[in-house]
Write a protein that binds this DNA or RNA. Structure first.
Lengths: 299, 299
DNA sequence: AGCCCTCTCTGACAAAAGTCAGAAAAATTG
DNA sequence: CAATTTTTCTGACTTTTGTCAGAGAGGGCT
């Protein structure tokens, strides 16, 4: 432990971070050992799980797990001998190889998954009201993973998009004095927010959707930005700005020259962000009952 | 990843816990590798650090790190050969052995410590306003470490006690409409809260003080419970109750038969806890300006 | 003292993880 | 098309980690 004066004990950021790390790595012996729960060494278990999580490209897995090519090759061979995995050349580039789970391998992966779920549930069961802990875990996971957070384009009916949209509607309902009823607002049809008319983006952090934004094509000479939302755990990390930047790029790709959006004064963070991101406030351009602020940006 | 329906994606507690785990173990490759930053294998590095953190008893280190006696012996021998550690028989029980760092060993340990500090600082530097993240890390660390949390008896002037007391005064100042000035309240002298007249307890979680309580001996036929505080990150986990239970045991050991305490209606959680822990509300028994509730409990 | 227990150390292994160099196959480049 | 690069695979290691059984010294109890 570093030498810390008494006033530091509770406030020193580095000491707190290190204590967090100590707590988490000690507990990792409980959380993490699902990888050891099926009598297989860590190496093969990690490879099997990486494949189960959808990583197919051998080079990619090697990079992700930090393995030497020789070691990787042997681990794959072992999994093949066990009948859990098949490896075949990539049709695009026959030097590369793609791994896939066999039926037996998928079962084995599911067993690991069940072990992990059990362990997570066991940890949570220790806390009578785990909501505080879960919210804190979300913040930590989002913050630590912020650089790994991917922004993907999806169908707005994709479950990950729907999860974000539901959270968005619920939050609007709480924030607006009047409540919020989607059916009263202009709910874009899905196809208006899909290529080639528009786009829908979701931010994914370690597999969890933590933000979204939609671009709705119109026939009025501009496209509209809709449904910008970030998870509470992600706020203050610049995610909304990043979503908007990607969305503007996407709009340019689609040949869109002018963007508009509406917002509500109950969402001051959003309005401040639009101002700082180069949007200009304009007059009302629709008759939606909820918004009271309107913005425009030329691309 | 487990199959989760769309509504689960954001709210399923197990999925959130597993995502947290993924984020933390991925990042652990960044946080944790201070143990690998000095060209020594993990085993010896862990032993050296355990000794540096004040663990001297070889059996204890073995238990803490989960090492076989043979392996432990060889690791210690290696560190001795490097001139970092000396091992000598325990004078109390010559079967046991005690390890200590040499000067060189202490330097090496300090180097590991500096690496850890740097890594923690580097992680924090990524966040412009890390207070949210730090608060979340405190909550997670406290929750995961709640079963490892020790309650120790200290001098109330110990830095760990002082850290808690300062936080307590500051919080009282914020919570009481009138503010709080220690000098106007009955500030017990340290010796009144030390054996044999009283006691002072501090809860330590992974090296961080997260709660305290004092037992102040008087000559009026009762002892007073003073300065009960738990860190915000520890609230809702029953820590105050645990501190009180230990304090009551300690009071019984000291031959005290009656306890009293005062509190303020600005601290409703505390008052609810006293009621549920078998305390009876009584009339004012002092003229301290701050309290407005008074309790008593016979042991 | 005798007996049983605890703790450390050693030797002898075994398993797991990691390293390195070179061969073979496929893709890319000039 | 030849030269170069990328990727995987193999063999031949080394290092690290973990296991087991037994020896030896010390402690506690009757």
């Amino acid at each position: 432990m570093s030498n810390t004066s008494s006033s530091d004990l509770l406030n020193n950021a580095v000491a707190r971070t290190r204590r967090f790390h100590r707590a988490v790595t000690t507990e990792a012996g409980v959380l993490d050992d699902s990888f050891l729960g099926r009598g297989r060494p860590l190496g093969p278990a990690r490879v099997l799980n990486a494949i189960g999580h959808g990583r197919r490209d051998v080079t990619e897995i090697r990079g992700y797990l930090g393995l030497d090519s020789g070691l990787m090759s042997r681990l794959l061979r072992g999994l093949e001998d066990e009948g859990l995995v098949t490896v075949s050349p990539d049709p695009q580039d026959a030097r590369r190889r793609l791994a896939a789970l066999t039926t037996k391998g998928a079962e084995e992966f599911a067993a690991y998954d069940a072990l992990s779920d059990d362990q997570a549930a066991r940890i949570l069961a220790r806390y009578p009201r785990p909501e505080t802990l879960l919210a804190a875990m979300d913040i930590v996971a989002t913050a630590l993973g912020i650089e790994r957070t991917e922004i993907i384009e999806t169908d707005p009916r994709d479950p990950r998009a729907v999860a974000c949209l539901s959270a968005y509607y619920e939050e609007l309902g709480q924030r607006l004095k009047t409540g919020f009823d989607v059916s009263l607002s202009a709910d874009p049809e899905a196809t208006a927010m899909m290529s080639p008319r528009g786009a829908f983006l979701v931010a994914i952090s370690d597999g969890m959707p933590i933000g979204c934004v939609g671009l709705k094509g119109t026939d009025k000479g501009y496209a509209e930005v809709k449904r910008l939302w970030t998870a509470p755990s992600a706020r203050g990390m610049g995610l909304a700005k990043r979503l908007m930047a990607v969305l503007e790029d996407r709009a340019r790709d689609l040949g869109i020259g002018l963007l508009r959006l509406d917002s509500n004064s109950a969402l001051p963070e959003a309005i401040a962000m639009y101002r700082s991101a180069g949007w200009t406030e304009i007059d009302r351009f629709n008759d939606d009952p909820y918004p009271d602020h309107f913005f425009e940006k030329a691309l």
